[in-house]
């Protein structure tokens, strides 16, 4: 199974390490030509304005929209979540606009308000250590979206068929269960 990690900017190596720990091959993706060989892709944490701008510049918007249309899974963490959302609060333009959610950027405040906490996630056994860094929140979800995790009644992880998002960073811990969950989605999509 080949899992790409979009490598325009952000924490790429950490996701590759997690994917490989779960037995799949991890590939850093810098060009759209690489997408054809992938079974799924992760859009990592980073700065969403930077990643969004570079995605536009190199033609990733259309190519990733087509990728999702083929039913191939996409997992977005933090900036990746923002990039996948249909609506970004306070911003006119979304990026990929694939997932029927409205996202609120920097919802917890500035870096000094960044935190970690143990949270239960639907479909994953036991609590997961969730690391929030200048994290976004999901303010609204559409009818097709399944909420997987909340923190103080706010939505921080969700799934819409082949799309998975988390506002925290599972790649910054030693716990690869969220990645295992995503790889299960990829397996389902391939079957």
């Amino acid at each position: 199974m080949n899992i790409g990690v979009l490598a325009l900017q952000g924490a790429v190596a950490e996701h590759i390490r997690m994917v490989e720990r779960e037995g799949a091959a991890g590939v850093a993706v810098k060009r759209t030509e690489q997408l054809a060989d992938l079974d799924g892709i992760i859009i990592p944490g980073g700065e969403s304005t930077t990643i969004g701008k570079l995605m536009r510049l190199y033609g990733f918007l259309e190519e990733l929209q087509a990728f999702a249309k083929q039913g191939k899974p996409i997992f977005g963490t933090c900036a990746g979540l923002i990039v996948l959302a249909k609506e970004i609060e306070g911003q006119e333009e979304a990026h990929l606009g694939l997932m029927d959610i409205t996202v609120i950027r920097n919802a917890f405040g500035r870096q000094r308000e960044s935190f970690e906490a143990d949270l239960p996630i639907k479909g994953v056994e036991g609590a997961v250590r969730a690391v929030f860094i200048r994290a976004p929140l999901i303010g609204r979800v559409g009818p097709e979206v399944d909420v997987l995790c909340t923190y103080q009644d706010q939505i921080v992880a969700a799934r819409q068929s082949n799309l998975l998002v988390a506002s925290f960073h599972p790649e910054l811990t030693d716990d690869s269960r969220m990645h295992a969950y995503f790889l299960d989605m990829v397996r389902e999509a391939r079957a």
């Binding site: 980073g46 930077t50 960044s114 690391v131 200048r134």
Partner: peptide, 14 residues
């Protein structure tokens, strides 16, 4: 330290 170092991880490649 994970939250503080993690913030820098998110800046990589930038």
């Amino acid at each position: 330290s994970r939250v503080k170092r993690g913030m820098a991880e998110m800046q990589k490649g930038g």
